[in-house]
Design a protein around this nucleic acid. Structure first.
Lengths: 240, 240
DNA sequence: CGACAAAATGAATGAACGCCCAGTCGCTTC
DNA sequence: GAAGCGACTGGGCGTTCATTCATTTTGTCG
């Protein structure tokens, strides 16, 4: 009830807290995203996680805490992984395209979690909803900065950046949200490169187009093989 | 439990059923979209609608029925109003742009309902979820046909239609979903014309561009005044 | 091994809520 | 004005579920 961002735990051993919370959150995310927050009962989470109901209250203050930490993990993954994948890339057009690819492929690795983040933010207590919204905005800014640099440096014609960034974000989320429709029609890398054709390419200057062509050549037409297909590096996922 | 699309009512007078359901749904939509389906109690709906809890069960079989009819109304409004606004418009580019405008302005008139449709479809019983999804698809097809005609008749270069239509749809929905962020920055008609600049204009052929220019001249740069700003014609809304 | 603490259990609790139904009200018919 | 009828009311039943806590298990250290 004090700082909205903190979650109390009765258990003191930090290592154990981390491990147990991971175990419980993994089960919770699956259930929440399948059936929704309110339908899922704490007993179901406990059963799926292989622990007792009481144990959950040793590691979380209440059910809302569970949702909050679940959402928080998703957004922190974005915030951590996207910059990591952009490291060492200098050219703004490369950055933008790689940013889109990174975002989409992280989404791909966390489809359930992404859907959850989309659908369940409103189920959080109001003070926490704002924390989550801020993190969302921070992620958007990552793509926004890439876009801005493209325009600033004359690779792209001036456009309504605000709106276009929003299109980028929904495009990436859509891979999770409408996955049932898209995944039959595209591979992930097709999806990204089609997206780039629709949402990046049309706005490039001649200079920018040259850069995109070069990127395409280097990455073999955005085929997955040549792209850095790193694992999302989920922290300490033990099995599978 | 028989046909998933039908909702039982104890009351026989069809006129009265229509009126009462409207009254109850209006309250329900407001509460559902503010607080979510599961948090909202039937007693709250009753209180807001100014009736007793028992009465709700005279007009709906259960709580799920209330949500279903609420969502159904939203989608039926789209399905009915968009074609109505396209009537008499021949040129495909005009059709597409007017379709986007129509969709956005209907969304604008039903912001709460649109958000509800987005967030709460998963709260429906499974058989009904599909009915709703079908209606959604049908609406998307309206824009899809406009886009297809543009390409077919050489006003637009070939693009990935499937993906672009999806961008159109999310663009229109975004006006309701991210309204808190957008409404400070754009008027609705600014929003639509910026959207057209981003998602239509870049793909036009020379021929198509001429058509768009002409449309812009006729509509005064998409300013709201010159567009057909019809009321959404919500059926029998009495007060305000 | 015994003692103690930390961690884990799961049955019990109590509050909330969907739905029902016995009863009231007001209108129509004869 | 009595009788019948459909609309409407709202208190309460039965269930579900978040949360608690008395108890057991596990692990550690002397």
């Amino acid at each position: 009830m004090k700082s909205p961002g903190h979650v109390e735990s009765v258990v003191t051993d930090a290592k154990l807290v981390e491990q147990r919370r991971g175990q419980i959150l993994k089960a919770a995310v699956k259930l929440f995203s399948e059936k929704g927050y309110y339908i899922t009962t704490v007993q179901q989470i406990a059963a799926k996680a292989g622990v007792s109901t009481g144990l959950i209250y040793q590691y979380f203050g209440d059910k809302d805490d569970v949702l909050f930490l679940a959402l928080n993990r998703v957004l922190e993954t974005y915030e951590r992984e996207i910059p990591r994948r952009l490291e060492g890339i200098e050219h703004p057009v490369d950055q933008l395209c790689t940013g889109l690819w990174a975002y989409c492929s992280i989404v791909d690795g966390m489809r359930e979690e992404t859907v959850l983040a989309y659908r369940s933010t409103k189920s959080l207590r109001a003070d926490r909803r704002n924390l989550i919204k801020e993190k969302e905005t921070k992620t958007n800014r990552l793509l926004g900065e890439c876009l801005h640099a493209c325009i600033e440096q004359g690779h792209m014609n001036p456009v309504n950046e605000y709106l276009l960034v929003y299109q980028y974000v929904t495009f990436c989320h859509a891979w999770a949200l409408k996955g049932w429709a898209f995944r039959g029609k595209f591979t992930l890398s097709d999806y990204v490169s089609e997206g780039i054709a629709l949402l990046v390419e049309p706005f490039l200057t001649a200079k920018g187009r040259t850069a995109l062509d070069s990127l395409r050549r280097r990455t073999n037409g955005f085929s997955a093989e040549r792209w850095p297909k790193q694992q999302p590096a989920r922290p300490r996922a033990r099995n599978n």
